[in-house]
């Protein structure tokens, strides 16, 4: 226990930091939902029941732009499909079944997957997943409500600029351990970024992130790291 307690404490601290920090961005989603014409209850229902940020933003974005309901659902599902891949990756290390798996599935998203897979030991993987998922769920939903109720507060241009910059920075911070891990990851990440940028002017917004997964093909090129 002597050697594992500090490790567990560090994991809890890091995961709480991620959960609460990213959770704050729910305020931006709350404001986005209201701006798109949804009610406060509908906006909060998305954070509670969908709980996957990119899909939520895509759904209100399409609805707000006057898109068809089917297009809104489709874009949310397209962005949500990567969570299936995350689930495949997490299924064995989490090893949960039954009701626990039913509940845990709701938390299978970018941040929980990244933090779980970055956990220093197999034993702390479940801890990282649970702490990140719980703190992010609480923070995301509370800040969604705050953002929806006080959406005009985020209209301050500088505050909006700060919030807009926090999201890509969060994804970069989540990607960072992988960039350090191996050259194969770096190659695939570079490929994913280039595919996404190249497709942005062409495809429905959001789809380029899914298609960027094709960059995993680069993992078979060249020598192992």
């Amino acid at each position: 226990m002597d050697s594992t307690e500090p490790v567990r404490a560090a994991v809890v601290r890091d995961c709480l930091g991620v959960g609460l920090a990213v959770g704050l961005y729910g305020a931006a989603f709350g404001a986005a939902g209201i701006a798109a014409g949804l009610g406060v209850a509908q906006t909060c229902a998305l954070s509670l029941l969908m709980f996957t940020g990119a899909s939520q933003f895509a759904l209100v974005g399409v609805l707000g732009a006057g898109g068809a309901p089917l297009a809104a659902v489709a874009s949310a599902l397209m962005l949500g499909s990567r969570n299936t891949l995350y689930g495949l990756r997490l299924a064995r290390p989490l090893g949960w079944r039954g009701l626990r798996r039913v509940v845990a599935a709701h938390g299978v998203i970018d941040e929980t997957t990244a933090m779980a897979l970055a956990a220093p030991t197999p034993a702390t993987l479940r801890l990282a997943f649970t702490v990140t998922g719980t703190s992010l769920f609480v923070g995301w939903n509370l800040s969604t409500l705050a953002g929806a109720l006080g959406s005009e507060l985020l209209a301050f241009p500088a505050a909006q600029a700060a919030l807009d910059a926090v999201v890509p920075a969060a994804f970069l911070a989540l990607l960072w351990p992988r960039l350090r891990a191996s050259r194969r990851d770096r190659t695939v990440a570079l490929g994913g970024a280039l595919i996404a940028l190249a497709l942005t002017p062409i495809v429905t917004p959001g789809l380029q992130v899914i298609l960027a997964a094709a960059a995993v093909g680069l993992g078979w090129i060249g020598r192992a790291p």
Binding site: R82, A114, L174, R178, L179, A189, G192, I210, A212
Partner: peptide
């Protein structure tokens, strides 16, 4: 490798 591609 999927998370590296999609996070990037």
């Amino acid at each position: 490798l999927v998370p590296a591609a999609m996070l990037a």
